[in-house]
Nucleic acid binder design. Structure first.
Lengths: 336, 336
DNA sequence: TTGTAGGCGTTATCAC
DNA sequence: GTGATAACGCCTACAA
């Protein structure tokens, strides 16, 4: 149906080789011939088959992005960054959403065959040993976003420091009884951010001579509704905290609802800090630790394309993006 | 580097043809041979090149999704649905974000070559005549989501009726002075939803013997901040409306902020209704007209894959998804 | 049941 | 400067 290079060659009265040379505008073509070929291309409304070209030159002109749980707003935000960065190039973006370890492994296995994509971006995926080996053996350029394996170039934030900023913000307001609400480490896809943030809170409190008692540490399934329940429980203790740091904005939203459930006013009686600075944080006036999600996607693409173009760097590159506290209306001084 | 079908054949002591037959599990293979081949495949960690296979059989096993302004939350939600539906198949999802007419045209031109993807999903894009012709000529299976051209199978909602539901909800609460806040029709990508919703409001009011005066019709650039300004202006008129229907949730959020700016309480003095039912609507307690965004993606994929498998339907299929009003806390009876 | 060989559309390496 | 021709990796008649 569609025209091929052969048809163009015939119409222009030249060989396929010449058409190819025009297509890839190589110098050694007679200007007149070139014009004739271009005319034929226009007449036939021809454009080359990416598939055939890919097979021939061994590159696909597309990059694969593997994301777990595309439904998480933070992941969407990173994807936006990736798409944005890629759209200024002529690489296609192939998205793989993985929600089971099986699918994750099969996707990565397919991708590392090297025929499907020219590079791979792993978002929020901590590769296990088998995967690391498979990727390295395949030599497929690979970059991690929001994951920490030192054997790959990667884009990360300092979660420990970020949590420390949240603590500092609360200490500055005068809080002493600070609690932490985080994710249960998921079995299938261990996502270490919550743990690191937990550590950051503990460490920063200790540095200030304070403590994070077990009673003020609540861990549960990620998500709003679970956070709501946990917060209710936390606030009905005999000595409730005056401030709560959550491992994510979503949990902070849930925490706020939980506070409302037991009629504890935010920020008068309880200050709440989230993490990520999603859109909703702005809408809701949530104080939060901002991490540059969009930019992480952009940075990941940049790292990856460099690697695709120049080959692997001598040593993996670690890009650390800055975090900061965005103070809005859910934090204030502790109750007297 | 990576193993090819040739290596597998050699290792298993059979021909390439036989390996291929095993790969596509065709019946006419001796069970023993099959086992031997499978073993060789496992040993070599082989998986077939999608590129070569695609070139050979003329299908790519991937579908292209073209979305304008991937940054809009409603688009993201549709994308989630598309990804979800596709992930249960073995089709890859190639995402194209287009933000200029030039890029839109070049993307669609590339895609209609038929070599890159097996089908195309156009989200929120009203194709112009040239595009329609190009697509039809290429015979590339194409489905529209949230766009109305009758020459294609498509997934839509009844915007007019949806807006009517919003009006009905407000009338039921006793409102008489109802205003509408909508998008300026964008030049580059004309997006008719706002206009249709406007029409729906007007029509429903008229059916109730009421009017939508020009003074109560405010139209501006889409987005929160512009809606905020417009709402402030609207509310400082001599006879402000008691209710405001917005063409999108984002604008409703802006409207609410605008009301707060001029110290008009929602819902005591002003009721606000949005459109879409994004996540934020739930977080903020916004009354809104829910449209099934996620499901629209699922439905679009279903339509498209049928078309890829069975060829084009005799007549384009129009799938209309249901809308309904979700009453939350931004609507109530009008002030006495 | 299995092997052989031509073709998918392009690029690259030769000659000429 | 241009034209053959052999790859690229797979699939699929057609033979055997």
């Amino acid at each position: 149906m569609a025209a091929t290079i052969r048809d163009v060659a015939r119409l222009a009265g030249v060989s396929r080789g010449t058409v190819s040379r025009v297509l890839n505008n190589q110098p050694r073509v007679d200007p007149e011939t070139r014009v004739r070929v271009l005319q034929a291309i226009a007449d036939l409304d021809f454009s080359p088959s990416a598939l055939a070209r890919g097979l021939s030159i061994g590159r696909t002109h597309s990059i694969g992005v593997v994301v777990p749980f595309i439904t998480r707003p933070s992941v969407v935000e990173r994807l936006r960054g990736i798409e944005g960065a890629l759209s200024t190039t002529d690489y296609d973006l192939v998205v793989f959403n993985v929600e089971t370890p099986q699918r994750r492994d099969s996707v990565i296995r397919d991708l590392t065959r090297g025929e499907r994509v020219d590079g791979m971006l792993l978002v929020g995926l901590e590769p296990d040993e088998a995967m690391v080996e498979a990727i390295q053996r395949s030599r497929l350029p690979t970059v991690l976003v929001d994951a920490h394996d030192a054997r790959f170039s990667r884009v990360v934030i300092d979660d420990v420091a970020g949590a420390g900023l949240a603590v500092k913000h609360l200490l500055g307001l005068g809080h002493q009884r600070i609690a932490f609400l985080g994710d249960l480490p998921q079995v299938a896809f261990s996502y270490p951010a919550s743990k690191l943030r937990h550590r950051g809170v503990r460490r920063a409190l200790r540095a200030a001579g304070l403590d994070l008692p077990d009673a003020y540490t609540v861990i549960g399934d990620p998500g709003r509704s679970r956070a709501r329940e946990l917060t209710r429980a936390l606030l009905t203790r005999s000595t409730p905290p005056t401030a709560l740091i959550c491992a994510s904005d979503l949990q902070a939203v849930g925490a706020r609802e939980g506070a409302r459930d037991v009629e504890i006013d935010v920020p008068t009686d309880l200050s709440i800090v989230g993490f990520d600075d999603l859109d909703i944080a702005g809408y809701l006036g949530l104080t939060t630790v901002r991490q540059p999600l969009f930019e992480s996607g952009v940075a990941g693409v940049r790292l990856l394309l460099e690697q695709v173009a120049d080959g692997p760097p001598a040593r993996p590159v670690r890009t650390v993006l800055e975090v900061d506290v965005v103070a809005r209306t859910t934090t204030g001084p502790p109750p007297a």
